[in-house]
Design a protein around this nucleic acid. Structure first.
Lengths: 148, 148
DNA sequence: TTACAAGCTCAACTTAACTTGAGGTCAAGC
DNA sequence: GCTTGACCTCAAGTTAAGTTGAGCTTGTAA
């Protein structure tokens, strides 16, 4: 057994709780990186664990992998994320979360107001006409809960 | 021009703001209904506008079409939704919304606590280990923001 | 040295919610 | 009577985030 510093995909999967296939996928998307052994197998530095942790947290916040990738790649020199970097990212993501919460609250309040009114008029219901339209932009599936 | 009571798909699309193809789609999913002219074209009663309005509001709340369909079909006798029905649905959906908001708040508070700590330890970070795991259940795409 | 687990690649499948396109019909004005 | 726009059906495409499987290679423990 070599120095305990290098991890195989299986080990990373185990320790991070994400599937091997997901790690392959993240790598293809440029979210994590590995080098290869002579036999073409992936080996990861320990920093990959922190990266994966960041990815998972960001996903729970509702950030897409594409955005996460952009954020990670925008770190100066593409270096391993430090405490400082994490501060920046988590602050930004917390702000996004705050916005989403605010949006949902607005919607809930509208819904609360509307209970009992039963109007649901296409033209007059405040729920339907107020606020930025989410839909109607380009093809493909819609973002399920909220657009930015 | 016949009595102004019957609407064509195009008219419903216009007045409701959803695409004709989406209306076809909703009909295939059993969310709305139509009858056909001699020439096999769809004609809708005005109640379709209220139904579509309900669908759109529910979607903004983050309810899936499948759940919306179930809710609509569970209305006694499949009748046109009344004020009463709308009350029931909107109350239930508001509660769901409340839960989602609460969940996001928990996440945000965790994120806030973690800012500055920079730990991101897979094993120790409270953000990573606390709370119900969302992922890891069955194949296919994950619900983007929140599982129920 | 021989199993057998763990890796590798690449293509295809999954879900949700629609959209797009092809190929053909219906209706209404000129 | 013909052209034009609105309709119709059905199949296939789109996005996100992975998973699943086939077919083949590595690595390691007995």
């Amino acid at each position: 057994m070599a120095a305990a510093t290098e991890l195989t995909v299986g080990q990373v999967a185990m320790r991070s709780g994400v599937a091997v296939s997901a790690l392959h996928f993240y790598e293809a998307r440029g979210l994590i990186r590995s080098h290869r052994t002579a036999g073409n197998q992936r080996r990861y530095g320990r920093d990959v664990l922190r990266r994966v942790a960041i990815i998972k947290v960001a996903q729970e916040v509702g950030i897409s992998l594409a955005e996460i990738g952009t954020a990670l790649r925008s770190l100066p020199e593409g270096r391993t994320p430090t405490r400082e970097d994490w501060n920046l990212l988590s602050t930004a993501w917390r702000d996004e979360l705050d916005q989403k919460i605010a949006q949902l609250k607005k919607l809930r309040d509208g819904l609360t107001d509307c209970i009992g009114c039963g109007c649901m008029s296409i033209d007059k219901c405040p729920l339907r006409n107020k606020g930025d339209r989410l839909s109607t932009r380009g093809p493909g599936a819609r973002r399920l809960l909220i657009e930015r």
